[in-house]
Computed example of a mutant assay.
Amino acid sequence: MTDTNAIGLHESSANQLAERLNALLANYQIFYMNVRGYHWNVKGNQFFELHTKFEEYYTDLLLKVDEVAERILTLGYTPVHAYSDYVKMSDIAEDKDIHDGTSCVRGILQGYQSLIGLQREILSLASDADDEGTAAQVGDYIREQEKTVWMLNAYLG
């Protein structure tokens, strides 16, 4: 009897990774909705610029939601799919009634910082488990999001 899954990872490692990836999925879902809300509700003289930029962000976040869920499935586990579970599992809180552009940008900056921290944790776990697929996925996300953090900080001055 083997203790590896269909892609050759040890079950205990795959289980631990799936749990952390489900936490990541929850954070992505809440963050996605926050950014979607910023897109809908931003007001002020930066409206056109920010409305367009926020759409770019939430479109990318939605793609990543699907990719993270599919990675959980690849590991042999079930992605969490109830919004009530996302709210409980996410470190990123729901952000409501934000209209000011600067506050929206700060919310996005904090969201990306949270994601990067969690993804670094997952990257470490994936490396220890010899899970190149998960490591590559979150490594790519970290690289992209670190640049976004730099740009958001530059925008805020």
Results as ranks from 00 to 15, higher is better:
83 Y>D: 03
83 Y>C: 03
118 L>S: 13
102 T>R: 12
129 A>V: 06
106 R>K: 04
116 I>D: 05
110 Q>A: 11
94 E>Q: 08
92 I>R: 13
123 L>Q: 13
89 M>I: 11
86 Y>L: 14
111 G>W: 15
121 E>T: 12
91 D>C: 07
86 Y>N: 15
87 V>M: 12
87 V>R: 11
126 A>M: 12
111 G>K: 04
84 S>A: 01
128 D>G: 00
121 E>M: 11
108 I>M: 08
115 L>P: 01
90 S>N: 06
122 I>L: 06
123 L>G: 13
87 V>W: 07
120 R>M: 00
102 T>M: 07
124 S>V: 11
113 Q>Y: 00
101 G>M: 00
88 K>V: 15
118 L>A: 13
127 S>H: 06
94 E>Y: 02
104 C>V: 07
98 I>N: 09
84 S>R: 02
106 R>T: 10
120 R>N: 02
111 G>S: 13
109 L>G: 09
112 Y>L: 07
80 V>D: 13
86 Y>R: 13
108 I>F: 15
99 H>R: 06
90 S>P: 00
85 D>R: 00
101 G>P: 09
85 D>L: 00
126 A>S: 05
96 K>S: 14
110 Q>S: 12
99 H>D: 09
100 D>L: 00
117 G>E: 14
109 L>I: 08
114 S>E: 12
89 M>C: 11
114 S>T: 09
117 G>K: 15
121 E>A: 04
116 I>H: 04
108 I>Y: 12
103 S>A: 01
92 I>D: 13
95 D>H: 11
123 L>C: 12
107 G>D: 10
125 L>H: 10
84 S>F: 01
128 D>V: 00
99 H>Y: 14
97 D>V: 02
98 I>L: 02
82 A>M: 10
96 K>I: 10
94 E>A: 12
112 Y>N: 06
127 S>N: 14
100 D>Q: 13
82 A>F: 10
108 I>H: 09
98 I>R: 05
94 E>H: 07
83 Y>H: 03
129 A>Y: 09
89 M>L: 03
99 H>L: 12
116 I>W: 02
92 I>M: 14
104 C>H: 14
105 V>N: 05
100 D>E: 12
109 L>A: 12
91 D>A: 08
89 M>P: 10
125 L>C: 06
